[in-house]
């Protein structure tokens, strides 16, 4: 930051805004929780939460909605980070919810849709009133209209046509019993901002974000890892390629991209030059239809 100019750099601005949001929620809402998946956005979010309350510990637990379809590197990372911070981890488990009959496995094996009831169930059980999510407005069209404080009714539903206007840095966190607020401190960040911040803050992320050799096969023009959740079908052959992940979601649905970027600097260069959005390049789930994300959000998804 150039102090004599009294002008913040873009990263300092975004950090100051996110820290403000964290503190506002902690001051006004009773039972917040931070959604922590081990993905890069939630890792950055966790760092910002840590900063917001320093030197005190962050005053809320973290929660992982565990689809059971995990990359082992990401789970290890999650557990290590939680232990370092000494925060409480709540796991809302989809496999466990299938077992007790809360949700049923979808025919195609995707757990994207059924994780929403599992999330809502955990919110109800723990009586969480505010949920921090790492979603960014640049990710997807429906998200571009999302508020920083996104009101959800007692069914966790988002009503895009009835959102609360958001002015200046004044957020309205008032709710009735049973209702909740989804809070998006990274709303104004882009994928590139996230990586610039990871570099500046020297934040560790799971190894799968960097280029590595992996056995993959091609489907719908995307590269999927050959793992227990995702096997090649007939006619699909596996091969070893140098890849990395741009997003980390359900391991049965998230594709890798060909890449030589094995350092933060190279990842930044690669993203600056790429011509595909991170979701378009890697997410089978969002390709289903133009409004897939909007529909899932209305049902209570992040």
């Amino acid at each position: 930051m150039t102090i004599h100019e009294y002008q913040l750099s873009q990263l300092d601005y975004l950090e100051a805004e996110a820290v403000h949001v964290f503190r506002e929620v902690a001051a006004e809402l009773e039972r917040p929780v931070l959604l922590f998946s081990g993905g890069k956005d939630s890792i950055v979010m966790l760092r910002l939460a840590e900063k917001a309350f320093w030197p005190a510990p962050m005053p809320f637990p973290v929660m992982h909605v565990d689809t059971g379809h995990n990359f082992p590197e990401v789970l290890e990372f999650r557990d290590r980070r939680v232990a370092e911070l000494g925060v409480n981890l709540v796991v809302a488990s989809v496999p466990e919810a299938i077992e007790r009959g809360l949700v049923a496995e979808e025919p195609n094996g995707s757990r994207n849709r059924i994780q929403t009831p599992v999330l809502l169930d955990a919110v109800e059980k723990h009586r969480f009133t505010a949920l921090f999510g790492g979603a960014r407005r640049d990710e997807e069209k429906a998200r571009a209209k999302e508020r920083v404080f996104s009101f959800r009714d007692e069914f966790g539903q988002w009503d895009p046509k009835n959102q609360r206007p958001e002015l200046w840095n004044l957020y309205n966190g008032r709710i009735h019993l049973g209702e909740s607020i989804r809070v998006f401190p990274l709303s104004n960040w882009t994928e590139l901002d996230v990586w610039h911040y990871i570099r500046r803050e020297e934040i560790a992320v799971p190894s799968i974000y960097y280029a590595h050799d992996r056995e993959v096969f091609e489907r719908d023009g995307m590269l999927f890892a050959n793992n227990e959740f995702c096997r090649p079908r007939e006619g699909e052959t596996t091969f070893v390629a140098k890849v990395r992940y741009r997003t980390v979601g359900d391991a049965s649905l998230t594709a890798a991209v060909k890449s030589d970027a094995d350092t933060v600097e190279k990842v930044i260069d690669e993203i600056a030059a790429t011509r595909l959005t991170e979701r378009g390049a890697t997410r089978g789930d969002d390709r289903v239809s133009e409004a897939a994300m909007e529909d899932r959000k209305k049902e209570g998804y992040f």
């Binding site: 069209k141 571009a144 209209k145 046509k161 909007e294």
Partner: peptide
Amino acid sequence: TDGLRAEREQGITIDVAYRY
């Protein structure tokens, strides 16, 4: 810049959208 389905269907923009 038309983010929501209702916007695309009606060919109008309903709400403030943020772009980067």
